[in-house]
Structures are given as structure tokens and as C-alpha cells.
């Protein structure tokens, strides 16, 4: 009995990612049940729900990072710009759909080499062009001014918040069309969190963002649309202000008002 509001973007304008009837299994254990959802282009979509509800699993299917775990399988369809992501080249897909992880995971290299990594490995950018690209990415990640003197220091010398923005810069350097963020602020202090939220606003101009968060305040602050997951199902998906002010389902209301176990 899925709502008819589900599966269609609230406003029928350009969906960047269209997910329909997605089931996901870890071995024989089903983790996602019939999830359908449309991610609107150049906006921020937040996914909320109690831990273990499947929101991170769902996020990781969007760039097929879920396949890095053994014995998983997917049924259903995910279209990126109308193209099935399961039939495109995996490496090319991930170049278009970047990801930022829960804990900052900079490589044990210099700041510069971290940002340059994707460009170098994916071929060919060198010299001045590479330096320009690195600077541009760091600027987009609002990190340039803070660390332009530390470009050739180890990335581990940065603070946790800076490391996370460095990871965002690293993802931005390959110019992804979509950026997936898996609880990017869970390991950060409030000031760093605020910086990343600001950053997300500026990024949506030329990028579609999907963020998984355990903080409802964060979802309410940053996103235009929010989906609520419970026990592997997408219970409700709507514009953020509607979902938070007039939730359509009892469970959603219980969760956002904190009455939920």
C-alpha cells in the first residue's frame, strides 16, 4: 500500500535519479523493500530514519558502492538521467556519482595529492592544469583559504572537519553530477558541521546532492526534499517543509517528534 505520492517527484520537473521498485539483499537477508523515489536535479535530498533502517544501504546502491560487500544483490531499477546504472560501466558511473563517507577518509598523501588523485588516475591532467583544478576544487569546498599554505603537508595534519571538506574537494575534483553524502557530519564538531552545511548550499548550483543524516535538524535545514526510511521501506517522501510540518504518516510524525523508540 505505497502512497501514490511515492515514486513520483513532488513536482514533476527534472528528476536526476529515478529509482523504482528497488529491493536489496545481503545474502538472503532483505535490507530494502520496494523503494521508489525520484531525486530532483540541483537540489538537496535528505534521507532520514532510525539507524539500521536502510537509508545508508540505499545511498550506497546509487553509485553501486554496495557491491563492495560480498554476496549482495539488487532487484529493481535505478535510472541516472534516464539511463540504467546497472548497465553502464561501473567506473564511469562512480565518476559521475561521487561519494563522501561517514568518517573522513583522506589518503595517506599530501593535501594536494589527495585532491589531484582522481584526476591523475583517471588520466592525464598534469602540470598547471592539474594545479588549477586542485585549487578550484578546494575553493568550491571552501577550504582553499584555510589550507593553501599546507598543500604539501600530509592530509592527516588537518583537523577532522578540514579532512572531511578535503574529501569533498577530492570528490568534486572529478566533476561529479551527483554527490552522495553518507552522514558526513557524524564525526564532526558543530562548527565544522555548519561549514559543511553552508558548503552544500553552494554546491547544489551545479550538482545534485543526496545526504543521509541521523539529524532531523540537519535534514530540515539543508534539504529541499526528505525521505523517511523505516525497516527497509521508504515510508514517506515529500518536500521537506511539508514532511516536517504535516507528515502524512503516523510513524513519520512519531519519529520527527522524538516519540519513536
Amino acid at each position: 500500500m505505497e502512497d501514490e505520492a511515492l515514486g513520483k517527484p513532488p513536482q514533476a520537473r527534472s528528476a536526476k535519479i529515478q529509482v523504482s521498485h528497488l529491493d536489496f539483499y545481503y545474502g538472503s537477508v532483505q535490507a530494502l523493500y520496494n523503494v521508489s523515489l525520484a531525486v530532483p536535479q540541483n537540489q538537496i535530498t535528505a534521507l532520514i530514519g532510525p539507524s539500521g533502517c536502510g537509508k545508508s544501504t540505499f545511498l550506497r546502491t546509487l553509485n553501486r558502492m554496495s557491491e563492495t560487500v560480498r554476496h549482495t544483490s539488487v532487484e529493481g531499477e535505478i535510472l541516472l538521467d534516464g539511463e540504467n546504472i546497472f548497465s553502464v560501466d561501473l567506473v564511469a558511473l562512480r565518476r559521475r556519482v561521487g561519494m563522501v563517507f561517514q568518517r573522513p577518509n583522506p589518503f595517506p598523501k599530501t593535501v594536494f595529492d589527495n585532491v589531484a588523485y582522481g584526476l591523475r588516475v583517471n588520466g592525464g591532467t598534469r602540470g598547471a592544469a592539474l594545479a588549477d583544478a586542485v585549487e578550484a576544487s578546494l575553493r568550491r569546498a571552501a577550504l582553499w583559504d584555510e589550507i593553501k599554505d599546507k598543500l604539501h603537508k600530509s592530509a592527516y595534519a588537518l583537523s577532522g572537519g578540514q579532512q572531511q571538506r578535503l574529501c569533498i574537494a577530492r570528490a568534486l575534483a572529478v566533476n561529479p553530477e551527483v554527490l552522495l553524502l553518507d552522514e558526513p557530519c557524524s564525526a564532526l564538531d558543530p562548527i565544522s558541521t555548519a561549514k559543511i552545511e553552508e558548503l552544500m548550499f553552494t554546491l547544489q548550483e551545479n550538482c545534485t546532492l543526496v545526504i543521509v543524516t541521523h539529524s532531523m535538524q540537519q535534514a530540515a535545514r539543508v534539504s529541499s526534499h526528505t525521505g523517511f526510511f523505516l525497516l527497509g521501506r521508504l515510508l514517506e517522501f515529500n518536500e521537506t517543509n511539508i514532511l516536517f510540518k504535516r507528515p502524512g504518516r503516523k510513524e513519520t510524525e512519531d519519529y520527527i517528534t522524538g516519540r519513536f523508540g
Partner: peptide
């Protein structure tokens, strides 16, 4: 840490 390899894979490597 396997998160490092994930980081690289997520960049389309």
C-alpha cells in the same frame, strides 16, 4: 583501513 579503498572506488577508479 578499507575506507581508503572505498574512497578511491567512489572517485571512479
Amino acid at each position: 583501513p578499507s575506507t581508503l579503498l572505498e574512497g578511491a572506488l567512489a572517485l571512479g577508479v
